[in-house]
Design a protein around this nucleic acid. Structure first.
Length: 205
DNA sequence: CAGAAGATCATCT
DNA sequence: GATGATCTTCTGT
Protein backbone atom coordinates (compact mmCIF):
# COMPACT_ATOMS: atom_id res chain seq x y z
CA UNK A 1 0.00 0.00 0.00
CA UNK A 2 1.22 3.45 -0.93
CA UNK A 3 1.29 6.27 1.61
CA UNK A 4 -0.41 9.50 0.51
CA UNK A 5 2.15 12.18 -0.42
CA UNK A 6 2.28 15.73 0.90
CA UNK A 7 0.73 17.32 -2.15
CA UNK A 8 -2.39 15.20 -1.69
CA UNK A 9 -3.21 17.13 1.47
CA UNK A 10 -2.15 20.59 0.36
CA UNK A 11 -5.37 21.15 -1.57
CA UNK A 12 -8.81 22.49 -0.57
CA UNK A 13 -10.52 20.52 2.20
CA UNK A 14 -13.48 19.80 -0.06
CA UNK A 15 -11.24 17.99 -2.52
CA UNK A 16 -9.33 16.12 0.17
CA UNK A 17 -12.62 15.08 1.85
CA UNK A 18 -13.77 13.56 -1.41
CA UNK A 19 -10.53 11.79 -2.23
CA UNK A 20 -9.98 10.40 1.26
CA UNK A 21 -13.02 8.16 0.81
CA UNK A 22 -11.84 4.63 0.15
CA UNK A 23 -8.32 5.19 1.55
CA UNK A 24 -6.98 3.30 4.53
CA UNK A 25 -6.25 4.78 7.96
CA UNK A 26 -3.59 2.76 9.79
CA UNK A 27 -2.40 2.87 13.38
CA UNK A 28 0.68 1.08 14.70
CA UNK A 29 -0.12 0.94 18.37
CA UNK A 30 2.32 1.17 21.27
CA UNK A 31 1.84 -2.61 21.63
CA UNK A 32 3.07 -3.08 18.06
CA UNK A 33 -0.29 -4.24 16.80
CA UNK A 34 -1.66 -2.79 13.57
CA UNK A 35 -5.24 -1.59 13.42
CA UNK A 36 -6.75 -0.17 10.26
CA UNK A 37 -9.95 0.70 8.47
CA UNK A 38 -11.28 2.03 5.20
CA UNK A 39 -12.40 5.68 5.35
CA UNK A 40 -16.11 5.76 4.47
CA UNK A 41 -17.31 9.13 5.76
CA UNK A 42 -15.64 12.55 5.81
CA UNK A 43 -16.55 16.17 6.37
CA UNK A 44 -14.70 19.26 5.18
CA UNK A 45 -14.12 22.42 7.22
CA UNK A 46 -12.27 25.64 6.54
CA UNK A 47 -12.04 29.30 7.47
CA UNK A 48 -15.12 30.18 5.41
CA UNK A 49 -17.40 27.90 7.46
CA UNK A 50 -19.03 29.52 10.54
CA UNK A 51 -19.24 26.05 12.12
CA UNK A 52 -15.51 25.41 11.79
CA UNK A 53 -13.15 25.79 14.74
CA UNK A 54 -10.85 27.92 12.60
CA UNK A 55 -13.58 30.42 11.57
CA UNK A 56 -12.48 33.02 14.14
CA UNK A 57 -8.71 32.65 13.91
CA UNK A 58 -6.03 30.74 15.77
CA UNK A 59 -6.57 29.53 19.35
CA UNK A 60 -4.54 27.08 21.42
CA UNK A 61 -6.96 24.31 20.50
CA UNK A 62 -7.22 24.83 16.75
CA UNK A 63 -3.60 25.72 16.05
CA UNK A 64 -2.95 22.44 14.17
CA UNK A 65 -5.69 23.41 11.69
CA UNK A 66 -3.53 26.34 10.57
CA UNK A 67 -0.49 24.18 10.03
CA UNK A 68 0.40 22.76 6.62
CA UNK A 69 -1.77 20.02 5.13
CA UNK A 70 -1.10 16.40 5.96
CA UNK A 71 -1.05 16.56 9.74
CA UNK A 72 -3.28 15.50 12.61
CA UNK A 73 -5.73 17.75 14.43
CA UNK A 74 -7.51 16.05 17.34
CA UNK A 75 -9.95 17.84 19.60
CA UNK A 76 -12.12 16.93 22.58
CA UNK A 77 -15.80 16.71 21.73
CA UNK A 78 -18.49 17.23 24.36
CA UNK A 79 -15.90 16.63 27.03
CA UNK A 80 -15.92 12.91 26.28
CA UNK A 81 -14.79 11.99 22.79
CA UNK A 82 -11.77 12.60 20.63
CA UNK A 83 -12.32 13.60 17.00
CA UNK A 84 -9.62 13.03 14.38
CA UNK A 85 -9.04 15.54 11.59
CA UNK A 86 -6.62 15.67 8.68
CA UNK A 87 -5.26 19.15 8.04
CA UNK A 88 -5.50 20.51 4.51
CA UNK A 89 -4.26 23.31 2.30
CA UNK A 90 -1.14 25.47 2.55
CA UNK A 91 0.57 26.53 5.78
CA UNK A 92 -1.27 29.30 7.68
CA UNK A 93 -4.64 28.52 6.09
CA UNK A 94 -7.17 26.93 8.46
CA UNK A 95 -8.68 23.82 6.89
CA UNK A 96 -9.22 20.19 7.83
CA UNK A 97 -11.27 17.09 7.09
CA UNK A 98 -13.03 15.32 9.95
CA UNK A 99 -12.83 11.54 9.66
CA UNK A 100 -16.34 10.38 10.55
CA UNK A 101 -16.44 6.64 9.91
CA UNK A 102 -14.32 3.62 9.00
CA UNK A 103 -15.03 0.17 7.72
CA UNK A 104 -12.91 -1.92 10.12
CA UNK A 105 -10.21 -4.01 8.40
CA UNK A 106 -7.30 -5.05 10.64
CA UNK A 107 -7.13 -5.36 14.42
CA UNK A 108 -10.86 -5.93 14.70
CA UNK A 109 -10.46 -7.95 17.89
CA UNK A 110 -8.73 -4.97 19.49
CA UNK A 111 -11.47 -2.64 18.31
CA UNK A 112 -14.07 -4.95 19.85
CA UNK A 113 -12.14 -4.91 23.13
CA UNK A 114 -12.23 -1.11 23.21
CA UNK A 115 -15.83 -0.74 22.08
CA UNK A 116 -18.57 -3.05 23.19
CA UNK A 117 -20.91 -3.25 20.23
CA UNK A 118 -22.93 -6.06 18.74
CA UNK A 119 -22.13 -5.44 15.09
CA UNK A 120 -18.70 -4.78 13.67
CA UNK A 121 -20.05 -2.05 11.38
CA UNK A 122 -20.68 0.01 14.53
CA UNK A 123 -17.09 -0.24 15.74
CA UNK A 124 -15.89 2.92 14.01
CA UNK A 125 -19.06 4.51 12.63
CA UNK A 126 -19.09 8.07 13.98
CA UNK A 127 -16.13 10.37 14.74
CA UNK A 128 -16.03 9.65 18.48
CA UNK A 129 -16.34 5.93 17.96
CA UNK A 130 -13.66 5.98 15.27
CA UNK A 131 -10.98 7.37 17.58
CA UNK A 132 -11.99 5.01 20.37
CA UNK A 133 -11.78 1.99 18.07
CA UNK A 134 -8.44 3.12 16.60
CA UNK A 135 -6.87 4.09 19.92
CA UNK A 136 -6.22 7.67 18.82
CA UNK A 137 -6.22 10.68 21.13
CA UNK A 138 -4.89 14.23 21.43
CA UNK A 139 -1.31 13.06 21.87
CA UNK A 140 -1.24 12.63 18.08
CA UNK A 141 -1.83 16.32 17.44
CA UNK A 142 0.37 17.68 14.61
CA UNK A 143 1.69 14.23 13.76
CA UNK A 144 2.70 13.88 10.10
CA UNK A 145 0.24 11.48 8.45
CA UNK A 146 2.85 10.08 6.05
CA UNK A 147 4.52 7.94 8.69
CA UNK A 148 3.91 5.58 11.60
CA UNK A 149 2.39 5.39 14.11
CA UNK A 150 -0.57 6.93 12.30
CA UNK A 151 -0.81 7.23 8.53
CA UNK A 152 -3.09 7.03 5.51
CA UNK A 153 -2.48 4.90 2.43
CA UNK A 154 -4.14 3.88 -0.80
CA UNK A 155 -5.30 0.25 -1.01
CA UNK A 156 -4.49 -1.88 -4.05
CA UNK A 157 -8.15 -2.11 -5.08
CA UNK A 158 -8.76 1.64 -4.78
CA UNK A 159 -11.22 3.14 -7.24
CA UNK A 160 -11.77 6.93 -7.30
CA UNK A 161 -15.21 7.87 -5.94
CA UNK A 162 -17.89 9.10 -8.29
CA UNK A 163 -20.11 12.01 -7.27
CA UNK A 164 -23.21 13.49 -8.83
CA UNK A 165 -22.93 16.65 -6.74
CA UNK A 166 -19.95 18.91 -6.19
CA UNK A 167 -18.74 18.53 -2.61
CA UNK A 168 -18.41 21.74 -0.69
CA UNK A 169 -17.89 23.06 2.81
CA UNK A 170 -20.74 22.07 5.08
CA UNK A 171 -21.46 18.90 3.17
CA UNK A 172 -20.85 15.48 4.61
CA UNK A 173 -19.53 12.80 2.28
CA UNK A 174 -20.09 9.14 2.87
CA UNK A 175 -20.13 5.77 1.26
CA UNK A 176 -22.00 2.75 2.39
CA UNK A 177 -19.56 0.01 1.92
CA UNK A 178 -19.13 -1.16 -0.67
CA UNK A 179 -19.13 1.90 -2.85
CA UNK A 180 -22.44 3.62 -2.66
CA UNK A 181 -21.66 7.29 -2.23
CA UNK A 182 -23.87 9.69 -0.36
CA UNK A 183 -23.87 13.46 0.00
CA UNK A 184 -25.64 14.84 3.06
CA UNK A 185 -26.03 18.45 4.17
CA UNK A 186 -24.81 19.25 7.67
CA UNK A 187 -23.79 22.05 9.97
CA UNK A 188 -24.42 25.28 8.15
CA UNK A 189 -25.96 25.88 4.74
CA UNK A 190 -26.34 29.36 3.29
CA UNK A 191 -25.39 30.90 6.61
CA UNK A 192 -28.07 29.05 8.57
CA UNK A 193 -27.64 26.17 10.96
CA UNK A 194 -29.55 23.12 9.79
CA UNK A 195 -30.44 19.88 11.45
CA UNK A 196 -27.67 17.40 11.07
CA UNK A 197 -28.54 13.75 11.61
CA UNK A 198 -25.47 11.92 12.83
CA UNK A 199 -24.34 8.80 11.13
CA UNK A 200 -24.29 6.90 14.37
CA UNK A 201 -27.96 7.43 15.15
CA UNK A 202 -29.57 7.48 11.76
CA UNK A 203 -27.83 5.12 9.38
CA UNK A 204 -28.74 1.91 11.11
CA UNK A 205 -30.59 0.14 8.27
C1' DC B 1 -15.62 34.56 36.70
C1' DA B 2 -20.05 32.66 35.39
C1' DG B 3 -22.63 30.67 31.83
C1' DA B 4 -23.64 28.72 27.39
C1' DA B 5 -22.64 25.98 23.46
C1' DG B 6 -20.61 22.30 21.19
C1' DA B 7 -17.82 18.91 14.22
C1' DT B 8 -20.97 13.16 20.00
C1' DC B 9 -22.71 8.92 21.82
C1' DA B 10 -25.18 5.60 24.69
C1' DT B 11 -29.33 4.82 26.67
C1' DC B 12 -34.07 5.34 27.59
C1' DT B 13 -39.15 5.87 26.10
C1' DG C 1 -37.34 11.66 20.02
C1' DA C 2 -35.08 13.06 24.41
C1' DT C 3 -31.57 13.17 27.80
C1' DG C 4 -27.28 13.16 30.40
C1' DA C 5 -22.25 12.55 30.55
C1' DT C 6 -18.22 15.78 30.89
C1' DC C 7 -14.88 19.40 29.64
C1' DT C 8 -12.95 22.99 26.62
C1' DT C 9 -13.60 27.27 24.44
C1' DC C 10 -15.65 31.45 23.85
C1' DT C 11 -18.49 35.43 25.37
C1' DG C 12 -20.20 38.79 28.43
C1' DT C 13 -19.85 41.39 32.73
Amino acid sequence: MKTLPLQFYRRPATVVAQELLGRILLHREPSGELVSGRIVETEAYDETDPAAHCYRGITPRNRPMFGPGGRVYVYRSYGIHWCLNVTCGPDAYGAAVLLRALEPLEGIATMRRRRSVHRDRDLARGPGRLTQAMGVDHTYNEHDLRSAPLWIATPKNYKPPFFVATPRIGIRLATDWPWRFLVTPCSWVSGKKVSCPTTSNHRDE
